[in-house]
Amino acid sequence: MAGMQCKCGKILSNTSSPNEVQLRVYSDLEYEEILGLSSIRDIFPPKNDVWRCNNCERIYVFDEEDNLLKTYVLEID
């Protein structure tokens, strides 16, 4: 995935590397597996791709085929 428009209107893109949009989020099980690896070269990408809009702080979670699974919105008190 290269880019998308957030619901707030901001354009999100992961075309530059590094970037502030794409987050590396591992489950606890994935993290335990990484700790057992013998080389840093064996580290695998996380199962899901997670993006954060730095304008409204929405979180988007995508599956391995770039299908949107969940959208999280910051609660306002």
Rank of each mutant, 00 (worst) to 15 (best):
Ile40Thr: 01
Tyr26His: 11
Glu30Asn: 06
Arg52Ser: 12
Gly36Ile: 05
Ser16Glu: 15
Pro46Ile: 05
Glu20Phe: 13
Glu30Trp: 09
Val21Leu: 06
Glu32Ile: 07
Glu20Met: 14
Gly3Pro: 00
Asn55Gly: 10
Ser13Asp: 10
Thr15Ser: 12
Ile11Tyr: 09
Trp51Ile: 03
Arg24Phe: 15
Leu37Val: 02
Glu30Thr: 07
Ser13Pro: 07
Leu29Asn: 13
Pro45Gln: 12
Ser16Asn: 14
Arg24Gly: 15
Glu33Val: 07
Ala2Asp: 15
Gln22His: 10
Asn14Lys: 14
Tyr26Lys: 09
Val25Met: 12
Ala2Trp: 05
Asn54Thr: 14
Glu57Trp: 11
Val50Leu: 08
Lys47Ser: 13
Tyr26Ile: 11
Ser38Leu: 04
Cys56Asp: 09
Arg52Ala: 12
Ala2Glu: 15
Leu29Val: 06
Pro18Tyr: 08
Pro45Val: 09
Asp49Ser: 14
Trp51Ser: 04
Arg41Ser: 07
Val25Tyr: 08
Ser16Arg: 15
Ile34Gln: 04
Cys8Val: 04
Leu23Trp: 07
Glu33Met: 10
Gly3Glu: 15
Ser13Gly: 11
Asp42Leu: 06
Val21Ser: 07
Asn14Ile: 13
Glu20Val: 11
Asn48Ala: 05
Phe44Ile: 02
Ser27Phe: 06
Val21Met: 05
Asp49His: 10
Cys8His: 06
Pro18Asp: 12
Gly36Arg: 09
Ile43Tyr: 04
Phe44Trp: 02
